[in-house]
């Protein structure tokens, strides 16, 4: 996999998360496509060994941005690096079908990331949508200010509705399209709540080795048995494809 060195132009702390901006000419064709990124230093450092997958948070034709949470050494170094190495756009993203009526966007924790660019693209396509964001606590919910009009829920009740991202919603079944990204148990709950009539698309968060389909490390179980790769066939899947 070939990586490209880019300078971090802007770094913003948003509660528990960090937002990085860098110049990039090859943006996502579909919202939900991802970037493999790491702090610059290869091949001298070799450690952390693997790059990390991040959804494009936003892209305006010149600047790409990534939203992430520091969870280990890889993200800790990324958080400090003046220069990063990236390769993108990777994977399959959300498909926008304008004829389906109103859309619901549901993000959980750091899974809110691809919903920013998705919302922008839905606006461009003239698709009205509602945004629902769920977080652990008020600190991680700080990023919600970047999503105008979003309905917020926190598990500890310190911000917005006390409960999960689904708690403020009466029903998802009236939405023509449901888009979601977050931890797997949340996505399973969204899939159930979306029912069978909407186009429900889920962006999974999996650990990846390579990001280009080679290692088969990032698989998800599919209905009918077996596994498919979230880096090539995903990370966005039609809900009915997934076995959970």
């Amino acid at each position: 996999m070939k990586f490209y060195k880019v300078k971090v132009e802007e770094r913003e702390e948003l509660g528990s998360y960090t937002l990085l901006r860098y110049r990039w000419s090859d943006g996502p064709v579909e919202p939900g496509q991802f970037v493999m990124a790491r702090a610059a230093g290869y091949p001298e450092t070799l450690d952390p060994f693997l790059a990390r997958p991040f959804s494009f948070y936003d892209y305006d034709g010149e600047m790409a941005s990534l939203l992430f949470e520091v969870r280990g050494r890889g993200t800790a170094l990324l958080d400090l690096a003046p220069t990063i190495e990236v390769t993108a756009p990777l994977g399959k993203g959300f498909r926008i079908e304008p004829g389906l009526g109103r859309a619901a966007l549901l993000g959980g924790g750091i899974g809110v990331a691809p919903l920013k660019i998705l919302g922008r693209r839905l606006d461009a396509a003239g698709v009205p949508h509602d945004v629902f964001l769920g977080f652990a606590d008020a600190k991680s919910a700080v990023v919600a200010r970047e999503f105008q009009g979003a309905e917020v829920a926190t598990m500890d009740g310190s911000e917005g509705t006390h409960g999960t991202v689904l708690d403020p919603i009466d029903t998802l079944e009236d939405y023509g399209a449901v888009y979601s990204c977050g931890p797997n148990p949340m996505l399973a709950a969204v899939k159930l709540a979306a029912g069978e009539n909407s186009l429900c698309q889920l962006s999974v968060e999996e650990r990846m080795g390579c990001g280009n389909g080679s290692c088969n490390g990032c698989v998800v179980p599919v209905r009918g048995g077996g596994y498919i790769r979230s880096c090539i066939e995903g990370p966005v899947f039609r809900a009915e494809v997934l076995a959970w």
Binding site: F49, R207, M208, G209, N216, G217, P221, G225, Y227
Partner: peptide
């Protein structure tokens, strides 16, 4: 079908 995930973990 292969093994259930998780299938990869980074090490030093």
């Amino acid at each position: 079908a292969g093994n259930p995930p998780p299938r990869v973990a980074e090490t030093p």
